[in-house]
């Protein structure tokens, strides 16, 4: 599996789908912020006790974190190795250059790097609070409002979410091709699902900083 370009792509596709599934849940859960501080904070608390009493406190959360970390690492490592290979396969470029492929397709690599950096910042900002002065443990609602009350918090987040939307747009459709489920007959619906989900995710995530900026969430 791992020693083939097709196998590595399958690893990328699978790990990408895991992350997209997570994004859907994450985006839907974020929307709870519009229902007020109590509900949002209670949901954040539930994340720590989910699965009880079968699971111990925070076990469910840590299982999710381990699965996601494994997905990010597998996705990133295969992307890096495949990209290195791709660049080596065209050592001399063309003198006559043409703009090619869609914007989403051409920005997959840099978009991925942006997303990787964003995830680090996002965790340091809203999970550990390391880069967040005024961070209060156990008060996610006010922490979110606090982050999106700064111009840089909004710029970083919105830029990353636009990159995420473009990445999902090409990535979801590509994953279907890589895993062999695409076809001429299914292509219209597959593209619609990929573009639609990318749009819903982007709008859904960006609605939170926009909500804070417009005072709907405060």
């Amino acid at each position: 599996m791992w020693d083939s370009t097709v196998g590595k792509k399958a690893v990328m596709a699978t790990s990408g789908l895991v992350m997209i599934a997570y994004l859907v849940v994450h985006m839907a859960a974020n929307a709870k912020i519009f229902l007020g501080a109590a509900g949002f904070d209670a949901y954040a608390h539930w994340l720590r006790v989910m699965g009880e009493p079968v699971l111990h406190r925070e076990w469910g959360l840590w299982i999710a974190r381990v699965v996601l970390l494994a997905s990010v690492v597998a996705h990133g490592v295969s992307a890096y190795q495949l990209s290195r290979r791709d660049i080596k396969a065209r050592p001399t470029g063309y003198v006559h250059k043409k703009p090619r492929a869609t914007y989403a397709t051409r920005t997959m690599r840099w978009g991925g790097v942006i997303l990787g950096l964003f995830i680090v910042w996002h965790i340091l900002d809203l999970t550990t609070g390391t880069v967040h002065s005024g961070f209060e443990e156990g008060k996610p609602y006010s922490n979110v409002v606090d982050t999106f009350s700064t111009w840089y918090g909004n710029v970083i987040y919105i830029t990353a979410m636009l990159a995420m939307g473009l990445h999902v747009r090409h990535g979801l459709w590509s994953a279907a091709q890589t895993l062999g489920v695409g076809s001429r007959v299914r292509d219209r619906s597959l593209k619609a699902v990929a573009n639609g989900l990318a749009l819903v995710l982007t709008v859904g995530f960006i609605s939170v900083p926009v909500g804070v900026m417009t005072g709907v969430v405060s």
Binding site: K9, D86, K88, A89, R100, A101, R106, H170, W173, T178
Partner: peptide, 13 residues
């Protein structure tokens, strides 16, 4: 792969 061709990124070119 052995010949040194790159991988597919589904650009459609």
């Amino acid at each position: 792969d052995h010949e040194g061709f790159g991988g597919c990124t589904l650009t459609g070119e």
